[in-house]
């Protein structure tokens, strides 16, 4: 009988190999999620940035004073003792102020790293890049439509260039902007003086022809009054067609009429009102007419504006949507 205690060498070697393997897997497993963790981290950073921009009005402090109107201190943005959170709202989430959007554009262009720092993207243990823009509701990542102001300048498209590969997190927020008339072009279409019209329009002797795309985003006409003799009749007609330019668009005296086809008759007038000194917001009316006539998104619509003895301005935008009485767009944030 063997009285010596003996451990089998096979068992020792097998156990050792098993333990080494087990420890190796235990060390290896967390690294499996490393890529995923960085993706998750990016998403949280992008979410945080959208909350700071779209839900807060921002703040500033220089050590002795503070406030929320950080956009008024452009000369101090670069100062080391001046800190600011570039929130964009008017005090209500999703309600953005036009001046703050422009200020963020300037701040990011001139003090990119400072803005990154203020948004928490640049810290001793974190280094993210970002890009922020104000885009149309149907803007796509591969075909971006940036919102422009009344002078045709892009309102907000700031930050580092968006990379074409790698991990990028993208968040968008539906917002509305104050005020709508900072974002739409104003074009004099009245009979009192020289007319100016959007790029897609042409001035004729008696009327104006335009080629727009359905659905219209913002289309309003502000009437200021009669051009000259107050006893003369005045009228304003808007005619839509799917193919070919409308031939004429004379409305009934003292009315504003919107119709499909031309000339305007009692059978093709879809909406009318007494012409008065006021603003006629026609976006929804025109889109409804086109929808009823079977227009599809992206279809060209031929519009003729006939106008007589009237001082008026056309407000038009091809980038900002006018929904529920608000100028609506989306704030898009990329972080990588």
């Amino acid at each position: 009988m063997d009285r010596k205690g003996r451990l089998s060498l096979d068992m020792l070697i097998g156990l050792s190999i098993f333990l080494v393997t087990f420890i190796f897997i235990a060390q290896f497993l967390p690294t499996v999620f490393a890529d995923v963790r960085s993706e998750i981290g990016l998403a949280h950073e992008a979410y945080k940035v959208t909350v700071m921009l779209a839900e807060t009005e921002g703040a500033w402090s220089n050590g002795t004073h503070n406030g929320t109107n950080w956009e008024d201190y452009e000369s101090q943005w670069g100062d080391t003792d001046f800190v600011f959170l570039p929130g964009l709202t008017e005090g209500e989430p999703d309600y953005l102020e036009f001046d703050k959007l422009k200020a963020l554009q300037n701040a990011t262009e001139n003090y990119y790293n400072k803005v990154r720092e203020m948004l928490g993207l640049l810290t001793p243990d974190r280094n993210y890049n970002f890009h922020v823009s104000l885009e149309s509701l149907d803007s796509k990542p591969y075909n971006r439509t940036l919102v422009t102001d009344r002078d045709g300048n892009v309102v907000l498209d700031a930050g580092a260039d968006i990379p074409s590969s790698g991990y990028i997190s993208r968040y968008e927020r539906n917002v509305w902007v104050n005020s709508v008339y900072d974002l739409v072009g104003a074009y004099y279409i009245g009979t009192a003086g020289p007319r100016n019209v959007p790029n897609l329009c042409r001035v004729n002797v008696d009327d104006i022809d335009c080629n727009f795309t359905y659905p219209l985003r913002f289309f309003a006409i502000e009437v200021f009054g009669k051009e000259n003799d107050p006893t003369n009749v005045w009228w304003l007609g808007v005619c839509l067609q799917k193919t070919g330019t409308p031939s004429s668009c004379n409305a009934k005296p003292d009315t504003i009429q919107v119709g499909y086809g031309s000339p305007l008759t009692s059978s093709n007038v879809k909406w009318e009102d007494t012409l008065a000194v006021k603003t006629y917001e026609l976006t929804t009316i025109l889109n409804n007419i086109m929808r009823d006539e079977g227009f599809s998104d992206g279809d060209t619509v031929y519009i003729k504006i006939g106008i007589h003895n009237t001082n008026a301005t056309l407000y038009y935008s091809g980038t900002i949507d006018y929904l529920a009485g608000k100028a609506v767009a989306k704030l898009v944030v990329y972080v990588w």
Binding site: S8, L9, D10, M11, I13, G14, L15, I17, F18, V20, T21, F24, I25, F28, L29
Partner: peptide
């Protein structure tokens, strides 16, 4: 001679575990 067989099984089992988990 028996010892060789057990060790080889241990190695193969560990490798299999590793590959599957990976």
């Amino acid at each position: 001679m028996k010892a060789q067989a057990f060790t080889l099984e241990g190695v193969m089992a560990s490798l299999l575990l590793l590959v599957v988990l990976y």
